[in-house]
């Protein structure tokens, strides 16, 4: 089973992307997935978590996610010790940052950085980085294929924002693949 934890702020789409990834795996790759937010009240701007579990078989375990294979940070202002908590050995942190080297807390971990905010501002004209970070995740992992994520976005997002978000997804994917 692959477990992904998304860190963002309310309104940045960190739960939406947890759901997009789950839908991509479950609907377009014959896998099973669970996607859920950190439970509780929803507040704009407050730190929130999203979780995606992906597996070949039905996922029965409904207890809290304590470990993860990938941590994805949509917003680097959220960096603190909780970000690396539960990260498995050989796990990877994917961070939206121009300069990840300045964070001591990330030292010793596999870190992949992408300037997702610039990609989002360029294409969406808004600093909504969730689909960019999904592209980055797919570039460094095999959680789902790029074409499955494209289909996931097509089926799960509002029509008016589908094309731009696919563009963001692909741009981020290629950016990370290019530097990898």
């Amino acid at each position: 089973m692959i477990e992904i934890r998304w860190h963002g702020r309310g309104g940045q789409g960190s739960f939406t992307v947890a759901r997009l990834l789950g839908a991509s795996a479950a609907l377009y790759e014959d896998k099973y997935a669970l996607s859920f937010p950190s439970f509780g009240p929803e507040r704009r701007g407050a730190p929130v978590l999203g979780f995606t579990k992906i597996h070949e078989k039905k996922i029965n375990d409904r207890s809290e996610v304590k470990t993860c294979d990938y941590v994805v940070l949509l917003d680097e202002t959220l960096i603190n010790e909780n970000v690396v908590k539960g990260l498995k050995e050989n796990g990877t942190i994917i961070i939206n940052s121009k300069n990840p080297g300045r964070y001591d807390i990330l030292k010793g971990f596999n870190v992949v950085a992408i300037d997702a905010t610039s990609i989002a501002l360029d294409i969406l004209k808004r600093p909504i980085t969730n689909t960019a970070m999904l592209g980055a995740l797919i570039a460094v992992s095999d959680v789902v294929k790029l074409e499955s994520a494209v289909k996931g976005i097509e089926s799960e997002m509002k029509k008016s924002i589908v094309n731009k978000n696919i563009e963001v997804l692909k741009k981020a994917y290629e950016t990370v693949k290019g530097v990898k």
Binding site: R19, G22, A23, A26, L27, Y32, A33, L34, S35, F36, P37, F39, G40, I59, R62
Partner: peptide
């Protein structure tokens, strides 16, 4: 509540 109501699945 939440464990089922707010978890997305197939």
């Amino acid at each position: 509540g939440f464990i089922l109501t707010h978890t997305y699945e197939l």
